[in-house]
Computed example of a mutant assay.
Amino acid sequence: MALISNPAQVAGKRVFLFSENKLLVCAGTQNELPGAEPFERCMRHHFIADWLYDTDYDYTAARLEKDVPVGESFYWLPLRSVFATEEIYAFEASRAHALLNWKERTRFCSCCGNALKDAEDETARICVQCTRRVYPSLSPAIIVLVKKEGKLLLAKHSRRNTDVYTCLAGYVEPGETLESCVAREIKEETGIEVTNIRYVTSQSWPFPDQLMAGFRADWKSGDICVQENEISDARWFSKGALPEIPKPGSLAYKLITEALEETDEGGCSKEQ
């Protein structure tokens, strides 16, 4: 089916209004989505930077201009919180945000340089000159929690101004399997080798277009030697001496907390 950008079809079953990585929801409710009226008002006042109607899932989504006044009836909810609370509309919100990001950076044909328009028969964009079709792209990435004798390997990224320690992660390179990407990223960033690599779960992470595949692995050999341009610090942590970890809603949080629950069952040592 298609993405329709036609003002005659302004609202589907759900309406998603975004400002950067935040979603507009109704005040005084449990993250209830707004109806068509705020979207239509923003259309009238030219507050919308881009929008779409997704015929596959019957929702309308729009990216608002910066600093649009929304009044006391609404508030901005971080999109991460939508994942953390597992809202019933989390999938559609993730898809909508990713498609808006894709449309924003996919305006011109990479072959001839002419403008792209929305396809009428599927989720794609078509060059008005050479008719080349462009489809939404995904950037596959892995994220992995490594364990050694009940302790967790967590790292602090050098490019982030934060004290949060998280799981190791990286993008899949051409020709790699997910498992080989796991082994390579761990070896490159910390110098250790792992074994027993196993898939856990996945998560759409539309910031802007990642598909995260979560893994667990066990330490095999080697001492930590960080890749300084990527990692500022990496250590083995026990449950009793954990650093600040990612917030709920992220796949890293899920991997870490599930491993800690297993630690409780296994009676791990409390020493770091």
Rank of each mutant, 00 (worst) to 15 (best):
M1Y: 04
M1L: 05
A2Y: 01
I4S: 04
S5N: 13
N6P: 06
P7C: 07
P7S: 08
Q9F: 14
Q9I: 15
V10Y: 12
K13F: 11
R14Q: 13
L17S: 00
L17A: 00
F18D: 00
C26Q: 15
A27V: 08
A27Y: 09
A27W: 07
N31E: 14
E32P: 01
G35N: 05
A36D: 13
E37W: 09
F39H: 02
R41I: 03
C42N: 08
R44Y: 10
H46N: 15
D54W: 02
Y57T: 05
Y57D: 11
Y59N: 04
T60H: 02
L64T: 02
E65L: 14
P69E: 11
S73N: 15
L77E: 02
F83N: 03
F83M: 09
F83Q: 04
T85D: 12
E87I: 05
E87W: 03
Y89I: 05
H97E: 05
H97F: 14
H97K: 15
A98S: 09
L99E: 06
L99G: 04
L100F: 02
K103T: 03
E104Q: 12
R105C: 10
T106G: 06
F108I: 12
C109Y: 03
S110T: 15
C111M: 14
G113S: 00
N114K: 15
L116S: 00
L116Q: 02
K117P: 02
D118N: 15
E120M: 07
E122Y: 09
A124G: 06
Q129Y: 13
R133A: 10
R133M: 08
V134M: 08
S139A: 13
P140R: 04
I142R: 01
V146T: 03
G150M: 01
G150H: 02
K151M: 05
L152F: 05
L153E: 02
L154N: 03
K156T: 04
T162D: 15
D163L: 10
V164C: 04
Y165R: 02
T166G: 02
Y171R: 14
Y171N: 14
V172T: 13
T177K: 13
T177R: 13
E179Q: 09
E179I: 05
S180N: 14
V182H: 00
A183T: 04
R184G: 07
R184F: 10
R184E: 09
I186K: 00
I186N: 00
K187M: 08
E189Q: 15
V194G: 03
T195E: 14
Y199L: 09
F207Q: 04
F207T: 01
L211G: 04
G214D: 06
F215Y: 07
F215W: 01
R216P: 00
K220N: 12
K220G: 05
K220D: 08
S221W: 08
G222L: 04
D223V: 12
I224Y: 07
V226F: 03
E228C: 09
S232G: 10
A234Y: 00
R235M: 04
L242V: 12
P246M: 01
K247L: 14
K247M: 12
S250Y: 03
A252F: 03
Y253S: 05
L255Q: 01
T257V: 14
T257S: 13
A259K: 00
E261L: 13
E262I: 11
E265G: 04
G266E: 15
